[in-house]
Design a protein around this nucleic acid. Structure first.
Lengths: 251, 251
DNA sequence: GCAGAGTAGGCACAAACATGCAAGAATGGG
DNA sequence: CCCATTCTTGCATGTTTGTGCCTACTCTGC
């Protein structure tokens, strides 16, 4: 194997796996670890990778985190996100809400999926840069707490789009209070987005079930489904079920 | 798992969950608690986390990026960015372009500065989340290469704003070709933004001087100033000076 | 102020490392 | 076509780094 081709492969692996282990690659390419180490040292010198003890990491920290996340046991948030990501199929147009669970959806979304994602969250948009999906950003005044565009201009922008599915993030899913969040403006924005989509699914990781915040977004029965991995036998889940919520099992 | 990747993961968890418990992470990553504790101790020493009894908490963001900045020599880009950031004074409304140099401006901007920043870049908007500044995002179709909103909707959004100063990023600053960039749509967007601002300054780090790209943005003489730290005696800089460009020394 | 969890420092071992060297392959001029 | 030069690779070397375990100490909640 040519040395240059090997370097190229190392960079490929860095991009794909988010890391390279000198020992493993040496075994795989049937060269000595010294050779791999030398390659990595040079890639580091060129700024294309970062040499670390045991191998190398990509020069871009974002890729590292992506890979690190994928290598550990998924928590409630990522299980819900993975289930939600499966709802987005090729050719579809989806609206993605802001918040950490929506961000987890972008991480769970296949990078080569051909679809259109509409979002009012700058962090969600930024994390979709590495994806093939078309991204449409809804602008407006940035609400710092959850990194989403809000206000009159954002609401106006939301009215100009429409989608097949809306993945809605909330802070509380409660049998009596319904779907709630912590900010009035944000609640209005979420309502507007829901009205622009054929279907709406709620991203409800464990800690949201049974919780309620100050501002109502929608009644439980106004959404297509509530994606959660909370224990179906818990009191809060039974209450939701009794209230007519369309609970969907994640993971 | 590579030790360096584990550190990354710890930082990621700190950012996501707001805390790290040594015992839990040791179990999750299948290493001893000692190892996690050592990692946390080092992150603390680097100022990237704060060690507490039982685990660690995130360091204040201000300290974190001070630590990050201190570890690298300021390059041309950050010198230009620092000079540009000084143009933004309290009470001002500034438009920030996309690109890595504009991103460096956000890093150079004091976190407690009271101002309004308008941007069509999602990465710039995301990095302003920790700042006191009001942020207005211009939405539209995301142009992945430079992480900015482009297209008809973005142009429309740009026409609705106005500002005191526009910090313009380009890929080429050339005596004959003027200010240029690599995409036609982006060039048009930059022109529109310039028309909405009283003053326009160009972020021209070293490597841009004397370079030219395919699409023209503006003639050299149409901007208020060109901020650069390139050698004033170089041929390219002399040519720019002769062409009537208002060169401003950075650093 | 006591019990139990958490911690730092020391120790030992294994893995990973840089370095120098020599053999072999590729390259380039004569 | 051949010889000199350069580049690459693998190996042996002594060194450094990361890790787990142990012990003595410290912190926290009751």
């Amino acid at each position: 194997m040519l040395a240059a081709a090997r370097r190229h492969l190392l960079l490929d692996r860095l991009a794909r796996d988010g890391r390279v282990v000198a020992k493993d690659l040496a075994a795989e390419l049937e060269v000595s670890e010294d050779t791999i180490r030398r390659d990595l040292r040079e890639l580091d010198a060129e700024g294309l990778a970062v040499r670390v003890y045991g191998g190398a990491l990509p020069a871009s920290p974002a890729v590292v985190d992506y890979a690190a996340r994928a290598s550990v046991a998924p928590d409630s948030k990522s299980r819900v996100a993975a289930a939600a990501a499966r709802l987005i199929v090729p050719g579809m147009t989806a609206i993605l809400d802001g918040g950490t669970t929506a961000l987890a959806v972008t991480a769970a979304l296949p990078r080569d999926l051909d679809c259109t994602i509409i979002t009012h969250s700058v962090t969600v948009a930024a994390s979709l840069l590495e994806h093939r999906a078309d991204v449409i950003v809804i602008g407006g005044t940035l609400f710092k707490h959850s990194a989403v565009a809000c206000g009159a201009r954002a609401a106006e922008g939301a009215l100009e789009v429409s989608a097949d599915v809306f993945l809605l993030g909330v802070t509380g899913v409660h049998a009596d209070a319904g779907l709630t969040t912590g900010d009035a403006d944000e609640a209005a924005m979420k309502r507007t987005l829901a009205s622009r989509s054929a279907d709406t699914y709620v991203l409800a990781s464990e800690e949201k079930i049974g919780a309620a915040s100050r501002f109502g977004v929608l009644p439980l029965t106004e959404v297509t489904g509530i994606i959660t991995d909370a224990d179906a036998d818990s009191a809060a889940m039974r209450a939701l079920d009794a209230a007519g919520a369309a609970l969907m099992r994640a993971g």
